[in-house]
Amino acid sequence: MSPRRLTVEGLRLAARRDGRPLELVRGVDLALERGRVTALVGASGSGKSLTCLGLQGLTPPGVERLAGRVRLDGAAVGPETLPGRLVATVMQNPRSAFNPVLTMRAHARETLAVRGVTDDVDGRLAGALAEVGLPEPGRVARLHPFEMSGGMLQRMMIALALLADVPFLLADEPTTDLDPPAQARILALIERLAAERGLGVLIVTHDMGVVARLADEVSVMEAGRIVETAPVADLFAAPRSGAARALLAAHRALYPEEFA
């Protein structure tokens, strides 16, 4: 039976500066539930992306994980069991997230190999491509990253996440690098897949429009801490934290007509 709930408790990550640890993520708790979309919002540098990596037991060079417990349906698991097996990640920069000298088929083969699948790569890839709305799977499989648009690559990244066949999806600013029509399509796709496949989604963003559109629940991050967690309607109606108010105020200043 596949797990329904993934939680991380007390995640702490630190960089070392002059031999002393400098905490970048200071005790973050998060819960993902299948079929629900949780948004993690906050200003740039508040630790959102690091949290995404850190909860999977991964850290960029120079950053170490000080603490953090991961539970699946309440049972403690090692964070290193997550990447590619329980959690798939959609990164924010589709252009650079693919190896420039490998075809889409090679990327699919790599993703499938993580869960020990080596047969019928083409058939599985074709299925995933159809789900994310990329036509002509035979042709796409032979393409290199530079032959595809940013929107196509982001779809491909989501297709890879589907190939991983995992219950939880982390989307780290999946639309930041895309033009508005592509953003809209990618968000609709994530929304549909979350509903159809019952994925537990964590979407990292600083776009409150995305939050309003997709999320069931919102966690607001500021300076490495989660300062507020609330259902999306409550947060928009009555933000309690300064960080949430600032994000909403910025959003209103940019898109005043939405709130008229």
Binding site: P83, G84, M91, S96, V114, L160, A164
Partner: peptide
């Protein structure tokens, strides 16, 4: 430091495989 190496690691590929590939 390349993003595609990070992408391979978050997709769960083992370190030796990431190195070779």
């Amino acid at each position: 430091e390349r993003d595609y190496v990070a992408a391979a690691i978050v997709s769960g590929a083992s370190r030796p495989r990431v190195f070779v590939e």
